[in-house]
Each structure stands twice: as C-alpha cells, then as structure tokens.
Design a protein around this nucleic acid. Structure first.
Length: 679
DNA sequence: GATTAAGGAATTTTT
DNA sequence: TTCCTTAATC
C-alpha cells in the first residue's frame, strides 16, 4: 500500500504484525499467503474481509471459500467484530464451502448448465449405491470375479473427476490392482453419468464439475466472475485441480484473488487435493504477491520445537521457520500405555486434572486418525458422565433411519430422484429391490408424477402400505407445508415402521425428532436438503438439540476434522504404526508423507500442553471368535531425533489390570501403603 | 419374486 | 462386529 493512504487506514490494523498487515492491506490483484500453523491465518482472512468492506467494497460482492461453513461463519463474525459496532454487514458476504457455493450458483445458472433447478444431491452413500446398482445390472459381481467394490469404483471415479486426470492414469497410479477392469469401469462410469443426468441428480463431484463446465464458456465465465469483486480462499493446500480451474474461471473480469494455505498441512490427497495448487499459484495468476506468515502465536516453544522436528522429515515442502514468543511451558509427553484401556484411563485422568486446574473441557481435545478409534474412550466417558462432542467419523446423515426419512423429502423435491424412490419403496413389506426398480420405471413412464405410484400394481399384501406412502407424498408436496410439518407428516407413516425395522428404535426416534427441530429453522425444503447434505451438522451431539447452551464438553475429533482448530490441551491417541500412519496408507512414499503431515496437523493444534499416547497391545475386537492381540510399535514419525524434544512416560510396566494410571497418584499411593507399616 | 438364514470378507480420512 | 452376497425357503 502506498504511504499516503495510511492516514485513512482503520486503527485496528495495529493489531496485526507487519506480514499480516501486508496481506490484509494488499491492493488489487492476486495474493498468496503461505501461513504456517498457528500464524494467524484466520485472523488475517477475517481482517482482510473487514478491510475490504471498510474500503467500500460491497460485502455482497465478496466470495469467501472455506473448508466448512463453520469456518466461514467464524471468520465473518470476527470481521464484523473488528469493523463494527454497527450492523453486521458481513452477513451479506458469500461464505461457505466450494460445494455449497456451487449448489447456490447452479440453482441460479441451472439452465446454462443443462440442469433443472430442482436437482437433488446424492451423498456418498447414494452415489455408491447407484454405482452398485449399475454394476449389478451389468453382471459384474464383485465376489467371484473380484471386481472392485462399489466403494472403490466410486473412489476411482471421484479421483478421475477431481484430479482432471484420464481414467487410465488414475488406475495406473492409485489403483493398480484394478487396472485390468479399465474397460468395464469406463462403461460403468458412462452409465453412471447418464443415469444421474436422466434423474436430475448431482453427486458431490458434479457440483464442482458443473460449476467448472459453466465457466468454460467465456460469456458465462464473465457473467459469473462479474458477481464478485474479490475472492478469498482458505486452506488452499487442500484444493484439487478442478477447484483451481474453477478459481481461474471465476477471475475473468478482474484478478482480485487471495488464497491462504500451508503446504505442510495438506491432508486431502485422497480427494484429489494437491500441493501443486499452491506451488503453481504464482504462474496461474500472473503478478501474484507472496506473503509468508512465520510467527506462531499458538503454541508454547517446547511444543513448536517438537512440531518443527516432525515436519522436518517431510521431503518436499516450502521451508518455513516457525518461531514463537510464547516461551516457557512444558515439553510434550509421549506416553506408552499397556493397552487401549490404560490409554483411555490416562487421557481421562489428565483431562480431569487439567479441568481442575481451570482448563474447561471444551479447551481440551482428543485427536485420532480414524473415527472408530475413539469407541472405547466414548464408552468410558459416558460411564463416567463426562460430556463430549465428537467431530468426524460416522455422520448423522448416513444413519439408515435418517436417510429413510430424508428420501421422502427428496422425492417431493425431485420426483425423478431414483435413489430416493428406491429407498422409500423398500420400506414397505413385500417390496424388495426388484419391485422397487419396476415401480421407479413406472413412475418415470407416467411423467414422474409422484402420485403415479398409486397406479403401480403390487402384491396384495403391500397395497395398503403403498397407498399410505402415496398419501404422504400428496400431503408433503402441498404448498403450505413447511419442512418441519413435512417431516412430521412423514413420521406418521415412518415411525411405526421404524419400530419394526430396527433394534434400538428409541435412539433413532430421537434423531428424527432432532431432524424435525433442525427443519423448523428452514422455510424451504430445498435449502433444508442442501444444507443437510452439504453442510451437515458437524458433531453427533449438535443434534441432541440445544438444551444446555453454555454446557461444557470435551472435544473428540478425527485429525481431519480438527483442521483449523486449536485447544489448550491436546491428546493425540493411537500414535502407533498401523494407525498413524494408517495401514491403508503405507503403499507409497507420497502416502506416508501425507500421514506425516497429518501427524503434524494434529500436534500443531496444541497451545499449552501436548500428550501423545499409544497402546502397546491391541486386541482384535472385530473378531468375536479370536481373542488374540497384537503388539504395536510406536509411530515411526516419532524418530529419535524428534524424541529429543519429548519427555517419555512409561505406563506399560505398571501392574494390575484396571487401576487408574495417573503417575503422580500412583507414587502417592505407593507412599501411603508403605506408610501404613511405618507407625 | 420376496424374505430370511447362513456364510464370508474386511475395516481411513470428507464434501 | 457389521456389511454384503448367495442360497434356501416361503
């Protein structure tokens, strides 16, 4: 910025360090901010938004792309706190994920994209099922011919689309064991695409793909670009080639774009994300300025020392020298436990101890590689009445009963939605896959009027239920029914089925009640569905409704879902080889390196205290028959070099099976027991 | 043609 | 364990 403008600069710019300030006050044109962990990336983006608005940019003409909706909201709230006292103008900023933004834009430009604007969205499960269906129709059964599973098929498809790469290359590089099926896969994918178009549905990848495709027309690219004076992108290291293509397309009129990221934290390669996007940014957007943020405000220096050592093992990265002014503090601890039970005990013990020292539960987080790794901890927390929220892992929306209910709404929104029909119909006794498929065809032949399901002939036993289902559809399509009322109506039909269908109807029923409550916040069914699928509730307990607002709870999270977060105390559990790195990801050097970055992301979430724990012994839980166990090894990422910065704690030698393993308390007890004889 | 019983296989990360 | 497919029955 030129000096003569500084008189007009807002006073809050003083709250930034020189590099942050450079980024925030940068003029027009492309800007790349390489921001190390904890260097105030969120702050910089938020202040940039505030700055732009203060400089007179219309908030409605700013697009802020983030990884989750929550991240966008937090930034915008922060931006409005910075600028105002007055009205939160930031509410008008377009903020959200790429997918949610795609959804919003595609509704507006549906015609241009060759879509009908009432399209519905297939989530991953639906997409898998559709592929599974097609695979089955083609007679490619997985078992005997060992054809790739439907999950794998979708993963291959997705990688091809997101990476903008030919199928052949994807197979060769990432799925070599499926190489021999290239022809069949190509044909499945062809049908998959045709089927989606015929049915007016988009999968997650399509949202990006259609957006990108619209932009390939110069006229439309100009039109879309002209909606936004500025585009800001967070977590740029986790975008994929198609997203980079979209951004280029969106900058037809001007090149005001700011991307922020850290190559050391790139952890979404499995989704096609590539660090290349960051590296290539300067060549893709000519004249780009680069700003590096290297002062870490988050972690105390002993923790930073450890994280710097961990990431130093990465082969390919931008060198950054992260430093912290937060001197003092404890060195991280690496705790070897006997088994998972002891690990749970230890973590809970430390959590409570920090809690007593004044750190609320919500400022502490337990992180792990995979969703199921917190299962035993969750049981123990529940038993002890310690409240927690879990992020990542199995999501609410994927639960069968929720999908059942949502499928009715999807039919109402888009009667062509084959997967929704298929699901709803099979709820009826006497209707299986075969009948359901024919019923779907019948409805299509009758012009996709949902009422046409009445005229489909089924076996006598199913007739009454089918008529009832048709009645539900009639009712919820009525104009004066809001989403919550629609769900209430569906439940009249569905609740009795739920009782019959599932073992634990009580818990499932509660989910449906939460769903109805969430729906009450929406006026339109379309928005409700889109939000549910694109910005789903992040924590399983977000759904328990908001009964206690200021309640405190411990955070459990997969490392992926912990991205962007920070906590006073962080526990990284299951730091054993096989889990970190995951056994699934040790195929190639690239994969292992991604696991290393994942570890780095986990460790850099910590502000004051960092505990890394791993159990020596794992029991085979998934086999009821074998009660065997296996010995684990400490994660390979904690090399001797790294360990020079970490204190080791050994709990595995302690005797007894189920005593609490607090070290301090342990010595205390030993003392007291000795004392008993000293009198 | 639908449902159920039985057998077999495999377990990541997310929009 | 859970999910999924296949074979046997209704």
């Amino acid at each position: 910025m030129s000096m003569n403008k500084s008189v007009n600069e807002p006073p809050w710019l003083d709250e930034l360090n020189p590099q942050q300030r450079d980024a925030v006050t940068y003029g027009d044109g492309p800007l790349l901010v390489v921001a190390g962990a904890g260097t105030g990336k969120t702050k910089t983006l938020a202040y940039r938004v505030a700055y732009l608005i203060a400089r007179g940019v219309n908030p409605g003409r700013i697009l802020l792309l983030t990884f989750t909706r929550r991240a966008a909201q937090e930034m915008l709230q922060r931006a409005s706190r910075v600028t105002q006292r007055g009205t939160p103008v930031t509410g008008r900023v377009w903020g959200g994920t790429f997918h949610a933004t795609a959804n919003r834009l595609l509704r507006i430009y549906a015609n241009a994209a060759g879509l009908s604007k009432d399209f519905t969205i297939l989530d991953q499960g639906d997409a898998e099922d559709l592929i599974g269906m097609i695979r089955h129709e083609m007679g490619l059964h997985s078992q005997e011919m060992r054809f790739p599973r439907k999950r794998t098929c979708l993963a291959i498809y997705s990688r091809t689309v997101n990476g903008s790469m030919p199928l052949h290359d994807v197979l060769e590089r990432y799925f070599p064991w499926c190489d021999m099926w290239e022809k069949e896969l190509r044909s499945i994918f062809g049908q998959y695409v045709a089927r989606k178009q015929e049915r007016n549905v988009l999968d997650y990848d399509d949202l990006l793909l259609y957006w990108a495709e619209i932009l390939s027309s110069d006229r439309l690219a100009s039109e879309l670009s002209s909606r936004f004076d500025h585009i800001l992108v967070d977590e740029y290291q986790d975008t994929n080639p198609i997203q980079a293509r979209i951004l280029r397309g969106m900058r037809h009129g001007n090149n005001n774009i700011m991307v922020v990221g850290d190559d050391a934290q790139s952890i979404y390669a499995f989704r096609g994300a590539t660090v290349k996007n960051i590296l290539d940014f300067p060549s893709q957007f000519e004249g780009a300025k680069i700003v590096k943020l290297e002062q870490n405000y988050r972690s105390v220096s002993p923790i930073l020392e450890t994280t710097n050592l961990v990431i130093a093992a990465a082969r390919q990265r931008h060198t950054k020298n992260l430093w912290s002014q937060r001197q003092g503090g404890e060195r991280p601890k690496l705790v070897t436990c006997k088994d998972e039970t002891q690990q749970d005990e230890y973590v809970i013990d430390r959590v409570l101890s920090h809690y007593e020292q004044g750190v609320p539960l919500r400022k502490q987080a337990v992180l792990f590689r995979a969703g199921h790794l917190s299962d035993s901890l969750e049981i123990e927390l529940t038993r002890r009445n310690i409240p927690y929220h879990k992020y990542g892992g199995l999501r609410f929306l994927e639960a069968a009963h929720v999908k059942d209910l949502v499928s009715f709404l999807r039919i109402a929104e888009n009667p062509r939605d084959e997967m929704a029909w298929f699901r709803a119909l099979q709820l009826i006794d006497g209707i299986g896959p075969g009948t359901a498929a024919r019923a779907v065809k019948h409805v299509a032949k009758e012009g996709n009027d949902p009422g046409a399901i009445r005229t489909f002939r089924v076996r006598p036993a199913a007739r009454e239920a089918l008529a009832a289902l048709a009645g539900v559809m009639d009712d919820i399509i009525k104009d004066n029914y809001n989403p919550a009322m629609q769900i209430e109506r569906i439940r009249k039909f569905y609740d009795p089925l739920l009782q019959k269908l599932y073992e634990n109807p009580g818990a499932r029923m509660r989910d449906l009640i939460s769903l109805e409550q969430i729906a009450a916040g929406y006026k339109s069914r379309r928005d409700f569905l889109a939000d549910l699928q694109l910005d789903p509730p992040t924590s399983t307990s977000d759904l328990a409704g908001p009964p206690h607002r200021d309640e405190d709870w411990l955070v459990l999270s997969t490392i992926h879902s912990a991205k962007g977060g920070e906590w006073d105390v962080v526990y990284l559990t299951h730091a054993a080889d096989g889990f970190l790195p995951s056994d699934m990801s040790t195929g190639s050097q690239d994969e292992i390196e991604e696991e290393l970055r994942l570890t780095y992301v986990a460790l850099t979430r910590a502000r004051d205290f960092l505990y890394i724990t791993w159990p020596l012994r794992y029991y085979f839980k998934w086999y009821a028959l074998t009660d065997g166990h296996t010995y684990a090894q400490r994660s390979r990422f904690f090399t001797d070099e790294v360990m020079t910065s970490i204190d080791e704690v050994h709990l595995e030698y302690a005797s007894g099976d189920d005593i609490s393993m607090d070290i301090e308390a342990g010595t205390d007890i030993a003392n007291r027991i000795r004392g008993m004889w000293k009198k």
